[in-house]
């Protein structure tokens, strides 16, 4: 399994390619030859999701929700429009819902059927989100899964799991940590983690 943590630039050409890499390479050659794809468009697609669309977008949404009550209210009523106002729109974010964590409620998002994920605000999902352990267990033992992420949810706090079975995409708005009073939106965005916006992390200052 290609989970060695290396960036794809480390891949090698020619005979060292894995069988899967060879299949994809052959497929790309075929599809380019047939005129179905422009390889330059493939490069742009990859760059888009490696450098432009990622969890920094979601962190900005969270930081604004923490500092701007009007925006937070808009996010609760119409997350799609509120998030679009920051410029985050498009594929896999067509219908957004924001889930606000509170002292009584911890929200956690999964897609048991495939790996649906809010791309415009979080980018492409990490491997663990797409893995069988997470997809199978998040709905039946969410608290055990959260413990593996270092998140201990007290018994009295309800865990709400959201299985993304349609085109609605969920963004968790974590609680703002104490000790961040007076911080700028930019400072706050800097401490918001991807996992906190999936519900498998909490934000600490």
């Amino acid at each position: 399994m290609p989970h060695d943590g290396h960036h794809h630039d480390h891949d090698h050409e020619g005979s060292e390619l894995s069988p899967l890499a060879l299949r994809v390479k052959a497929l790309e050659s075929l599809l380019v030859e047939k005129g179905y794809v422009d390889p330059k468009a493939l490069d742009v697609l990859i760059d888009t999701y490696e450098t432009k669309i990622g969890p920094r977008n979601g962190a900005r949404v969270v930081a604004k929700a923490w500092t701007d009550p009007t925006f937070a209210d808009w996010l609760k009523r119409d997350a799609t429009a509120a998030i679009a106002s920051l410029g985050y729109t498009g594929r896999q974010g067509e219908h957004m819902v924001a889930l606000f964590n509170t002292p009584e409620t911890h929200n956690m998002v999964v897609c048991t059927l495939c790996s649906c994920y809010p791309w415009p605000v979080l980018g492409l999902p990490p491997v663990w989100y797409k893995s069988m352990p997470y997809r199978s267990r998040a709905v039946i033992e969410p608290r055990e899964v959260l413990k593996e992420f270092g998140v201990e949810v007290p018994d009295e706090r309800e865990v709400r799991v959201w299985d993304s079975t349609a085109e609605v995409r969920y963004l968790v708005i974590p609680e703002r940590p104490p000790g961040t009073e007076g911080w700028s939106e930019e400072q706050l965005a800097g401490i918001v983690t991807r996992n906190a916006m999936i519900g498998t992390g909490i934000v600490t200052a």
């Binding site: 943590g5 290396h6 493939l42 990859i46 492409l124």
Partner: peptide, 25 residues
């Protein structure tokens, strides 16, 4: 659930090309 620290968006060139091919085609 095994989470990877500082995970790259794609773990190999073929994953990136596969993602882009699916989208473009």
């Amino acid at each position: 659930v095994v989470a990877e620290e500082n995970e790259p968006v794609f773990h190999a060139l073929w994953e990136a090309r596969m993602f882009a091919l699916m989208s473009a085609v």
